[in-house]
Amino acid sequence: MASALLTLRALSIPLLRVSLGVVFVWFGALKITGTTPVADLVAGTVPWLEPTALVVGLGLTEVVLGIAMVIGRQVKWVALLVAAHLCGIFLTLVVQPSVAFQTGNPLLLTMTGEFVVKNLVLLTAALVVMAAAVAPVEADRR
């Protein structure tokens, strides 16, 4: 059992890092190719920027960050940038509350609201990857 736990510990953070990277590349590629279903949501969240350039720019940023996560170099800095990017997504809840909440109630999420709030998990994953890169966890000595 202890051996399985050690193996799980050795694999879980790299798998989390790579899976987060794959998700970022995938979502970014959809934005670059103009096939993302969230283009209007993104454009509506930052209405002072030109929509197409914004969506493509975010897509390029996501692809670069995703590739960097998969490669695994300078992980603490890349994970920090991923976390910062994910924090920006929550701007939707402030700028477009009518698309995120049913009848203005922050406890009643719309499908869009759920889409945005689920990014808490991705944000936490980025923080875990960053923390592991800064201070790798030692195996329990029990």
Rank of each mutant, 00 (worst) to 15 (best):
L81R: 12
L11G: 04
S3V: 15
P136I: 00
V63E: 05
V128R: 02
S19G: 05
P97H: 09
V117C: 06
A29Q: 03
I32G: 03
W77P: 04
A100F: 08
V116N: 01
L49M: 12
V46E: 05
A131D: 01
V117G: 08
V56P: 01
L41M: 12
W48V: 14
A79L: 10
Q74R: 15
G57N: 09
V63Y: 04
G104C: 09
L15W: 07
T45M: 08
N119I: 10
A125E: 05
P37F: 02
L41R: 13
M130G: 03
K76P: 09
Q96M: 11
L15M: 13
V70H: 04
L122Q: 07
R141A: 15
F90I: 03
Q102R: 13
L60Y: 02
F115Y: 15
M69E: 08
K118R: 11
V134E: 07
W48S: 15
V94Q: 12
G44A: 11
L123H: 03
C87W: 03
M130D: 01
V116S: 02
G59K: 06
L54N: 05
L109H: 05
I71C: 04
E138L: 13
L127T: 09
A100V: 15
P136V: 03
A100Y: 14
V42L: 09
M130V: 04
A125G: 04
W48M: 15
I71M: 08
I89A: 10
V22R: 01
G59V: 02
V121M: 04
S98V: 11
H85W: 05
A133I: 13
G104P: 08
A131I: 05
L6C: 06
V38C: 00
V137M: 09
G72A: 02
L80T: 15
W48C: 10
R141Q: 11
V63S: 09
V121L: 14
P47W: 04
L93C: 06
L60N: 06
S19M: 13
P136M: 00
L86V: 05
A68Q: 11
N105E: 11
L11C: 05
M69Y: 08
N105K: 13
V94D: 09
F101A: 11
A131Q: 11
L91P: 02
F27Q: 14
A39Y: 00
T61G: 03
V137Y: 09
V78I: 14
L122E: 03
A79F: 01
L20N: 03
V137T: 14
